[in-house]
Design a protein around this nucleic acid. Structure first.
Lengths: 338, 338
DNA sequence: AGCCGATTTGTAATCGATTGCAAAATTGAT
DNA sequence: ATCAATTTTGCAATCGATTACAAATCGGCT
């Protein structure tokens, strides 16, 4: 491949200066239509392509955003990826994937990339902030970071979240309204705010319904299918097993249902199960899973839109957007049968 | 944030030239240990951070690879993403996500990005090549592209694939060995090579077993849960419904199982179902799905490794790596019951 | 024609690194 | 001490664009 043509070449062919070429190609109002067309013609004759690297160096932007998650292979993120990607590309940004595997050092690496200008912004879904990283200490304006679905305190950042506590209450209320009284909750990890909020919602709803939570009725899993199975086993090895399960995410709910099936317990005849997230598969699981749905694609889109606003300085003060959730009634929950 | 320190600043502080600074920081053998340390010290005192953009412009690389898929929210890709990401980051590359949504124009955009140097290489999972794109016509050496899990002809590219035909045969053979004779196949889209190969494997296996394929026993879906349901409906509305289904992917298999359940047919008592892909959820589906497993993470890792070899010119001739598949026996298949 | 102001164009600096080549410093041998 | 060979260093060009500022051109008006 012969060396690429650059604006210098166009300048020569069109008989103008490189400055004019640059202006013409970017539709600056500083060039006449005549020269603009002349330059355009030369450019297309020479098959010119802008060197993005050079331009980005000059304008001090990278036109890339970083999407950082703790585990890239979590299916929950898929729709979010898609939403972010759609908005990012529409705005001319490329999407850089970051995967921390819960490793703090990696976390820092991505923050470093942001500070070093390898990305212009970041959508953070890990819920972790490297303590007082330079990036967070810009005196002027906000750091170009949107925290999605997690919360970090100590810092003035834009957030987009759902109301986990209320959603959890709603789920439990549904079970209560079906007549269940022994309702257990399989939690997510409690160091994380998400797990805590859902647990809080569960507890509140139970208290409001005047129901006791027996010791051990809220085992902690790690959002994996396997841990759902394990927690379910614990609960049903008890003498007073629950008749309904509110599980902190769909995957653990699947694990729990598998375990129930293994024990010969029917869902929902013997036990009602309700999940959280509404994975793509939940609708057609057997039984179709009652669950809390989050508008994941919209969350991705909104997060990216917010990030663009921050980058473009249209948004300069911390702001938290709350997205609505919805309780999706399917066939894994039913009235309690004595 | 005061303007970032650059090598010029270090040069001043360390009392050397920028050339020496650059060499010292990149561990060139052209500097003495003494000056190297001196420079290093100045750099860390000044809190220096390399400007990656500037360096990339100069060395004419972007240290980024593009991963292009037709639909970002397909859960099948997750483990592949992860494999690619792991190898890429270990080699110092960042991962750019490309999502075509089956739009040819987008396809071209990503090829343009490659040509324009916005990425140094590409892992292509769409199975589509923009006809005679410049990138493909490098006289010298191969284009830095690895085609994964799809095949494109007409062109000398590196491929990584699985043996779809043999895997499909294996699946069908399993059903045959369980005594099934009326075995249907829910195909993937046939414009795509994947769908055709799996269909071919099905047909071959049936022929080898001396079994007829009635007209309409191979309905075509689009890999979605919904289309699996739809194809299943067609098959079981017949007078001679099958006793076993080999489905071209797990999602359609889920759809089919849902439809069977709706009709009051048990899996595997009444109908055996076998899928393809072994999604994360398949193991704990009810019933756990018998399926063909592909080593997805390894496929991602291997694809990226190959790409690095091409970029590094360690691999200069087209090569196809074939990854092994495995038939995973679970509970969705069983002996035929008369 | 001459002058003023508004447009349009060009010159050259700049973004922040890497690197070819020349110059300087060092080493070793005589 | 001298000189050649070798190792270290520095100068300045380069990657390919954008843009501040200066220069040129144009148009309108007297």
């Amino acid at each position: 491949m012969s060396s690429r043509t650059k604006i210098k070449d166009i300048a020569r062919v069109a008989g103008v200066s490189t400055a004019t070429v640059s202006r013409a190609l970017s539709d600056s109002s500083l060039v006449t239509h005549a020269t603009r067309d002349k330059v355009r013609e030369a450019a297309s004759k020479l098959n010119y392509r802008l060197n993005v690297r050079a331009r980005n160096l000059r304008i001090q932007k990278s036109m890339a955003v970083l999407l950082v998650v703790r585990n890239m292979s979590n299916p929950f993120y898929l729709e979010i990826f898609k939403g972010v990607e759609a908005v990012a590309r529409a705005a001319g940004y490329v999407l850089l994937m970051g995967n921390t595997e819960d490793d703090d050092d990696r976390d820092i690496e991505y923050f470093d990339m942001l500070r070093d200008g390898q990305a212009d912004g970041m959508i953070l879904m890990t819920g972790k902030l490297p303590a007082d990283h330079e990036v967070l200490q810009t005196a002027s304006g906000m750091a170009p970071i949107v925290v999605a679905l997690e919360a970090v305190d100590d810092c003035k950042l834009a957030h987009i979240q759902i109301d986990n506590c209320t959603a959890a209450k709603q789920a439990v209320n549904h079970l209560v309204s079906l007549g269940h009284r022994r309702i257990a909750h399989i939690c997510g990890p409690l160091p994380e705010i998400l797990g805590r909020l859902r647990l809080e919602g569960y507890r509140t709803a139970m208290a409001e319904a005047g129901l006791d939570i027996p010791e051990g009725y809220d085992p902690v899993g790690d959002y994996s299918i396997h841990s759902g199975k394990e927690c379910c086993r614990q609960l049903f090895d008890r003498e007073d097993p629950p008749t309904a399960l509110f599980v902190a995410n769909d995957e653990m709910a699947f694990g729990a249902i598998g375990e129930l099936r293994r024990r010969g317990l029917g869902v929902p005849q013997d036990v009602s199960v309700i999940g959280f997230d509404d994975l793509f598969i939940s609708e057609s699981y057997s039984p179709p899973l009652t669950t809390i749905s989050q508008p994941r694609m919209e969350i991705g889109q909104t997060a990216m839109t917010m990030l663009l606003d921050i980058i473009g300085a249209r948004l300069t003060d911390p702001k938290t957007i709350e997205m609505p959730t919805e309780l999706i009634l399917r066939e894994s929950t039913g009235p309690v049968i004595q």
